[in-house]
Structure formats: structure tokens, C-alpha cells
Design a protein around this nucleic acid. Structure first.
Lengths: 268, 268
DNA sequence: AGCGCGAGATGACCTCGGTTATATCCCTTG
DNA sequence: CAAGGGATATAACCGAGGTCATCTCGCGCT
């Protein structure tokens, strides 16, 4: 069991989980952080790492099921997801909800367009999470001191933009069956991309069928129907947060994907 | 008639339109460029403008209806839209198409996640366009010489990300009527945001009903039905690329929008 | 071991929006 | 100014996916 699988296994709990990082207190462990592997701090030299640590305001632990930040609330920092899964969402008045993005360790969340003081969407932890916080007002000074950080941030966000575009064509133009397989395949590939060389065909996905539906624009009822069919067809099983790929080739086929493009889901 | 309206009025033509900027040749007119007003070059000092001009490779004129770049083709530069309208799109094998984003003057297009050499989506000109080109390999040097450019780029892209998120909840969770009004209202507001103080209730939108459908995940037939109903209800008229807002309040109501959020569509 | 609740499963019915076909309109080009 | 083609209009029919209601299952808790 890798560390993230065991983390995810605690997902459903109301417990706070590990807190191996007290805000500001203990020595910073940046060299093992997800951000160093595939996020903002990738390719940083020890020197630039030291600068960056100056500009962050600390870390924070978040319990599964709670908001990292909420729609309409003032947001004044960007967050790097050090560990755990989270998702971005919008909700309409009548309880309709759209999940916009699933964030894995190393993701950067909370950069707002312009100087908008209020978050136009919310972020919720799917598992217990640890965040690394950089206040918005530190971004300009930081990018002057570490010039490459601006371009790294641009690339990270444009990666998220690309994912959002893929979701958009999925929701806008694909059938229910295609959408569900597309999403599960995406999450599978992105998850596995974090542990290169992984040959797993099973994984603990901290989502309910309701989450899947809210992400691809379907009802939980219909997601259930689709999943049953996929199980009967021997493509995948997804039950009680446990995803198993039964037939990878069939899965790619059903999702209607260009296999060449799958690799672009992995941030590098 | 403002310059963009007259530009748009030529939209449907196969003609190349004005070319007041020959690649590399004539003196650069950056101080009147859309990018200086609301894009990458906003807030640039004369000094940084001079640096930026060093790193661009020139301008290019594009005819309405042709691609700025195409899906799967190698893409090696970012483009600032100096003038004209364009849209980003993906298409599936069986001719289904999803429009991902409408770009107005000042937009930055073509930044690819990671070093992906191939564009995961295409861009097509809706009207004749003029582009300012910065090769990808110049981005790192540029951001070292003009450190603030990285953060500006990040903000621009995160603005596009925010728009993509809005489209996603629209397509995923809103009714056809809401989607169509939402899109038209968005385009109207973004367009008007480019000419502050504008009090126009009519505008030439260089889109067909097919474009609208492809953007919000509906058929052109159904878009037509919705538009008829909206006309009958005295909300808006949209016919042969001519959009007229009949009742702004009703429009906002029908689209189910939080009026507070409308302003976030305008890039500042 | 047993309880309770959230997640999943499933059937009956209905509606929104897709499909197909055809007609009309408007703008551009010869 | 007439012709032609793309854009729009509209009707008839259909089906994917939503809604509602009810039941079962699995997991965490005591």
C-alpha cells in the first residue's frame, strides 16, 4: 500500500487524520513534497526553495468533507495540495452542483482571475488534506525574486485549463457511457502518473457515484445504471470507492479517447 | 460604429480584410494594441514594452473561418489576439464539435501545458484576425527579463480557466434556455467590457446558431427553438449574427445568474 | 453482535432535447 | 439582378437520461 492509498482509505471518516506538519512550527520538508515532484517547486534549486519558503505563510491540515475555501468568501492565498484529494465545485440556487476539477497532490488551487477578492467557486477536501499556503500579496514579490515561478504557475494553470476543456467536450458532446468512462480513466491515469512505474489495475477512488454524476453532468441514478452496464460488459467495476479496471483496451475504446492524448493528463 | 463592429461586419466574408500590420515590417503600434489595454502588455512601461518586442517574432493576419492552429499539429508559439474574434474547439471522430472558449481582442492563446508539442485543441478565426506571435522558446528568457510577465500570464490564463468553469456548470447543470441566455449574456458583457462606458443594447456577434449550439452542448435545431421562445417572451433577439437585448433584467433572471458575478467576466 | 445511516440498486414513468426532413430566408457573387 | 448556398425556421417523431419511489447493502459505531 502506498501512502496515498492508505490516506484515501481514511477518506470517509470525520477524523482529522495525520498532522505531520504544524503551521510554521516544525522544519519544512519541502524536498519530499508533491509540489517538488510535479508542482510549483519542481526543478527548484536549493536556493530558490529557500526563497519560496520565505513567501509562504505556513501549512494547514483540512478534514475530509470540509471546504478549503468557499464560494463567495474572500480568498487571499493560493494553496498547494501537499497531500490528499480535493475537488472544485460550483452550485446553483436549487442545489444543483457541478464539480469542476479534481485536484491531486501537487495541484495549485485558489489563484483568482484579476484581483477578485471573492472566490467564484469552492474547494472541498475528499480526503484529509495538507495545504501549503502562499498569500496572494506575496505572489508579485515572489515572482520578482524567483522569476521562473511565474512561468511555472502559468503552465500549471494551463494544464488545469486543458483538463477543464476536456471535461467541457465530455459534458457537452459525449454520451453518458463515454462521460463516465472518460472521467474514471482520467482519474486513474492521473493517479497512476504520480507513481511512475506503477502497474496497478485497482485503486481506491475517494468518490461516490454522486460525485461522478456531479462531475460529468448526470444524475447519480443514471451513473449507477451506466456502471452496472459497464460491469456487465466487463469493462470496469466501481463500487464503494473501489475502482477496478477489468479491460483497459475496452475501456479506452468505450471512452472514445485518442490514446495518444491520455498522456497529456499527467502533469510533468 | 466602433472599429470592432465594423470589423465583425466583414466576418462572413472570404476576404482577408485589413492588414494594417505586415509581419515584421512596419513600425510596431503596441501602444494602441488590445494587449496593452487588457492583455499581456497591460501596465507595461515603455522599457518593458521594448523588451517584449524583442521576444515576439512578428504579427500575422488570419482570414475569417481559417485555423490559427489545429488539433494535433505542432504548436510552438503563443498568440495575442490583436484584433478580431476567434474560438477554441475540440472535435470528436464523428463530427461532434465542442467550442471551448470565445476569444476577444487581448486574449492570449496557445500556451500548452508542459512542453506538449502538439495542440490538444484547435483555434479558428470567427472574423478576420491579427495576431502577435511569441515563440514558446522565448517565454523563459522573456520572463527572466520582464519578471512580472509570468504572473500576468498566470492571471490571464486563470481568467480563461474561470470562464471554462462557468461554461462547465452551464453545460453540465443548466437547462437549454439557461445555457443559451448565459452564453449570449456572457459574450455581450465581455464585448461591452472592452469599451468602457458603452451603453449599447445591440451588437453584431459573429456567430451562427450552430456555433452557439456547439458552445453550450445543444443542437442547432434546439438552439433555434430556444431563440424563438426567447424572442416571443421579449427577452432577446438573435438573428443573422445580430444580437439585441430586449429586456436586460429578464435576461439575467432567465439565465439564472448571480448579477454580482457577471462583472468577473470582464478581464481587467 | 447488532444498529443505523449513507451509498448503492432498480423499476415505472415522463420529459427535454435529439433526429430527420423540408421549406424559407438572407447575403454574397457573377 | 438573378442565382446559389449557407443560415434559419419548423414540424413530427423518438430516445437518452431525469424523476420519483422503494429497497438493499456495506461500513462505522456502540
Amino acid at each position: 500500500m502506498t501512502s496515498v492509498i492508505s490516506l484515501a482509505a481514511r477518506a470517509n471518516g470525520k477524523t482529522l487524520g495525520t498532522r505531520n506538519s504544524r503551521p510554521g512550527a516544525n522544519p519544512v520538508r519541502c524536498h519530499t513534497c508533491a509540489a517538488k515532484i510535479n508542482g510549483l517547486c519542481q526543478h527548484s534549486t536549493p536556493g530558490t526553495m529557500a526563497s519560496m519558503i520565505q513567501f509562504r505563510s505556513g501549512e494547514r491540515a483540512i478534514a475530509a468533507g470540509t471546504d478549503l475555501f468557499s464560494i463567495g468568501k474572500p480568498a487571499n492565498a493560493i494553496f498547494t495540495l501537499v497531500s490528499g484529494w480535493a475537488f472544485l465545485y460550483q452550485s446553483l440556487k436549487d442545489s444543483r452542483r457541478q464539480i469542476l476539477h479534481f485536484a491531486l497532490p501537487g495541484a495549485v488551487l485558489g489563484l483568482l482571475p484579476g484581483q477578485a477578492a471573492r472566490a467564484p467557486y469552492g474547494a472541498q477536501a475528499l480526503t484529509d488534506c495538507v495545504l501549503c499556503i502562499i498569500p496572494h500579496e506575496n505572489l508579485s514579490p515572489l515572482s520578482r525574486e524567483v522569476p521562473e515561478i511565474g512561468m511555472r504557475l502559468s503552465w500549471l494553470i494551463s494544464h488545469d485549463l486543458h483538463l477543464a476543456f476536456d471535461h467541457l467536450t465530455s459534458v457537452g458532446r459525449r454520451s453518458a457511457r463515454e462521460r463516465v468512462t472518460h472521467l474514471l480513466l482520467e482519474l486513474f491515469v492521473r493517479y497512476r502518473g504520480q507513481w511512475p512505474g506503477n502497474r496497478i489495475d485497482e485503486l481506491y477512488l475517494p468518490l461516490t457515484q454522486q460525485h461522478v454524476g456531479d462531475a460529468v453532468g448526470l444524475t447519480a441514478v443514471h451513473v449507477n445504471r451506466i456502471l452496472r452496464k459497464l460491469r456487465e460488459d466487463g469493462v470496469i467495476e466501481f463500487n464503494y470507492r473501489h475502482l477496478r479496471i477489468l479491460d483497459p483496451d475496452k475501456l479506452i475504446d468505450v471512452s472514445g479517447l485518442d490514446p495518444q492524448l491520455v498522456i497529456s493528463w499527467v502533469r510533468k
